[in-house]
């Protein structure tokens, strides 16, 4: 259902930034996501296990980074049900410091417009510790 605050497809331009958001993942947040998702791989909350398998530290779940990144688009849309397709490649891990956590920066730009389908493709640039952590992160949204 379209509301007065739903973005208008015909007002969008390719390359337009529709969201620019920063998030912070904490160790507590990793435990919370483990419980919510059912992914209890200990590399996401135990330093000793992460070290034993040769990782630089405890890592955020890739699916957590993916889940957080799309929220920038949801907040712009005002409706989580308008996401019709969302895909990413996991290109680099996000190390989460026990005290500082990890910052995730998301910039969302209009990548393509499909007026016939009433849809836009939004391309995400997702960085942490100065590097890109999700590749080819694309969200198709319905603006009908």
């Amino acid at each position: 259902m379209s509301t007065p605050t739903t973005p208008r497809l015909d007002a969008l331009e390719i390359g337009q930034v529709v969201a620019d958001a920063d998030y912070r993942i904490s160790r507590d947040g990793l435990v919370r996501y483990a419980g919510a998702s059912g992914d209890f791989n200990p590399i996401h909350y135990r330093d000793d296990v992460a070290e034993a398998v040769g990782l630089p530290g405890v890592l955020a779940h890739g699916m957590l980074t993916m889940g957080i990144a799309v929220q920038s688009v949801v907040d712009w849309l005002g409706d989580p049900g308008r996401i019709v397709d969302y895909g990413v490649r996991f290109t680099r891990p996000v190390v989460v410091d026990p005290i500082e956590g990890a910052g995730i920066a998301v910039v969302a730009k209009v990548g393509a417009l499909d007026p016939d389908a009433g849809e836009a493709r939004i391309d995400l640039t997702v960085t942490a510790h100065g590097g890109t952590v999700l590749g080819k992160a694309q969200v198709r949204v319905s603006l009908r």
């Binding site: 998030y23 947040g29 919370r32 996501y33 419980g35 919510a36 998702s37 957590l64 889940g67 957080i68 929220q71 949801v74 907040d75 005002g78 409706d79 989580p80 049900g81």
Partner: peptide, 9 residues
Amino acid sequence: RAVFATNPI
């Protein structure tokens, strides 16, 4: 809550 989804919907 775990993925910072705060929309009332």
